[in-house]
Design a protein around this nucleic acid. Sequence first.
DNA 1: GACCCTATGTCAGAATGCTGACATGAGTCA
DNA 2: TGACTCATGTCAGCATTCTGACATAGGGTC
Lengths: 152, 152
Amino acid sequence: MSQDGAGVDLETSLGYLLKEVSSALRVAMEEVLRPLGMSVTRYSCLELLAQRPGLSNSELARGAFVTRQSMNVLLQTLEREGYVTRPAEAPVGKVLPTRLTPRGRRSLEKATVAVRSVEVRMLAGLTETEQSTAFRILRSMVRSLHDGNDGA
Amino acid sequence: MSQDGAGVDLETSLGYLLKEVSSALRVAMEEVLRPLGMSVTRYSCLELLAQRPGLSNSELARGAFVTRQSMNVLLQTLEREGYVTRPAEAPVGKVLPTRLTPRGRRSLEKATVAVRSVEVRMLAGLTETEQSTAFRILRSMVRSLHDGNDGA
DNA sequence: GACCCTATGTCAGAATGCTGACATGAGTCA
DNA sequence: TGACTCATGTCAGCATTCTGACATAGGGTC
């Protein structure tokens, strides 16, 4: 009854399960980030900047999986609130390298602890080997999906 | 430089990789669904109804990982356009069991083919064993994440 | 029956992300 | 040099989803 041959069976579909996991992960992250007054996208942006200082708006957008327009709005907010800084003039081209301020770094610290606790919980019950296997398999999926789009 | 000890290293984080995969999957699905004039959520709703006829608004919302308010908006659209039907009066309680119309079923058929092709592409390069392993690991992640929230 | 708790359907407003569009700067090629 | 292409930053409008709120139905418990 749940599979009439032609359909994508939800119970056995890896795509559906993937959506379920990412949904649960997002909910869990929002839950621990909310008390800190931070959203997932905001956290992603700050974490990206902490690990790769000087990233541009477009690079941050790609790293956080949103459009550069959305990231631009977020960066303007973060800049206005004093979490990041961007030069008034582009050193080269139109690219504006962004950096965390001390305030941004402090804000990120608490968020990082919270997010790490979620990731630890998600990985609970998995061996090191299983985690490595999962990593390899997920990487393969990303590659396969991109190949079909970009043709690269 | 990319890992100063305390940070969540993006290059090795399963959470980040998970976000990358689901993002790529969503993009790929939107790409094949757009020519059919269908969105991912719309497809999810129809597929859910095909496999489990009579699902209520709230059940569909949970199955598609959106709020029941969002699903309600979608259902009203689908009903107005003749893809689904709901009784005017609730047979029991307030629950309105929803069903696909022939038109909805036809619309879904093409979409299912398109979505299946994406899933096949995503799984290309993975053995049957790897797919089973991925399924088991992802299920474990969902369980661990939910345990922390519901306390169940 | 009275009460409480939960789940549901639904409306309205707010937030978030996306598409479309434009100007500008860098690289390539003839 | 000039034309062409591509990537970037940014503004504006639109679409989708979410949060808040309300009334109602059903299952308990007393």
